[in-house]
Design a protein around this nucleic acid. Structure first.
Length: 277
DNA sequence: ACGAGCGCCTGTCGGC
DNA sequence: TGCCGACAGGCGCTCG
């Protein structure tokens, strides 16, 4: 499911609460039950429940596509991968079919990690940098500048699309927002990073921030049963629109496979000239 | 240093 | 109705 805007939305809801769910801030974790063992990356399945019980939730944030939950002594990191989600439920509700980890909280509620495809992972650690250390800059931070992006592109010889999805280059972009950013920047996904001029990099920088901000504003993208609550899917210009007319020029959107991921672009607005460079 | 291929998993959808 | 392949907001691992 989730890219940066969806993870940000989930973090905001857990923090502040909303109409359907209370805030988790300040709640003690009473008990943990691990339903699918491989969901837990660290520590072992025996240590995890003992160590997390009794800790309280102090703050909830995001780094890249990771949720970062600061507890009394440790940090809980959650990566939702393709189909993960977090639900705040009544402690009396039946356990859902796809729940992989349950944290029972004070006040008769619980936090359920729901993940049909079982790709998601959870870490409980005193040293989150050991897991987050390889991530590139946050694209919405001030430290991420056009110059920084230009240098990252120039320093490699790589197709734009897989480079933008590489979390060590920029943290948070996934398949949807990468395709949308490249379209807005009018750059073909197969262009070689080294061939990009400073002006093009600046355009790409602007587009990346623009699509991520718009996604957050719309509470993320909800395109199927996996993630609900967002409506940025109404504003997508290329993703999932293959053979439909480009909103800019009317040419049919093309779909190709790059790095095993489906890639959507407008062959007219995003010319391929120069991708041998 | 890079790209391609595959594994990890379950669910949905369209075609026959 | 049932079966079968294609496909899905991710990432880590091999192998050239």
């Amino acid at each position: 499911m989730p890219e940066l805007p969806e993870v940000e939305t989930i973090a905001n809801n857990l923090n502040a609460g909303n109409r359907d769910q209370p805030s988790l801030i300040g709640r003690e974790i009473l008990r943990a039950s691990l339903i699918w063992e491989r969901t837990l990356a660290e520590p072992g399945p025996n240590e995890f429940p003992e160590r997390i019980a009794g800790q309280s939730i102090l703050s909830i944030g995001r780094r890249g596509k990771f949720l970062r939950i600061q507890l009394s002594t440790d940090v809980l990191l959650i990566h939702l991968r393709m189909s993960g989600d977090l639900r705040v439920e009544s402690g009396a509700a039946p356990i859902g079919k796809h729940s992989r980890l349950i944290l029972e909280l004070a006040g008769g509620i619980r936090l359920a990690f729901v993940d049909p495809r079982k790709f998601g992972r959870v870490w409980l650690t005193a040293n989150p940098d050991s897991i987050l250390g390889g991530l590139g800059p946050e694209p919405l931070d001030d430290t991420f500048t056009p110059q920084a992006l230009f240098e990252a592109l120039r320093g490699r010889r790589r197709q734009l699309k897989p480079l933008l999805m590489d979390q060590s280059i920029i943290a948070g972009l996934g398949n949807i927002y990468t395709d949308e950013a490249l379209h807005q920047a009018r750059l073909h996904p197969l262009l070689t990073s080294q061939s990009i001029t400073f002006e093009q990099a600046e355009r790409l920088w602007r587009s990346i921030r623009s699509v991520l901000r718009a996604g957050i504003q719309r509470n993320g993208t909800s395109i199927d049963w996996v993630y609900q609550g967002g409506d940025y899917q109404k504003f997508l210009r290329v993703y999932g629109r293959s053979s439909q007319p480009c909103v800019e020029c009317g040419a049919p959107i093309e779909r190709i496979i790059i790095g095993q991921r489906s890639t959507h672009f407008c062959p007219y607005c995003q010319p391929s000239s120069g991708y041998q460079d």
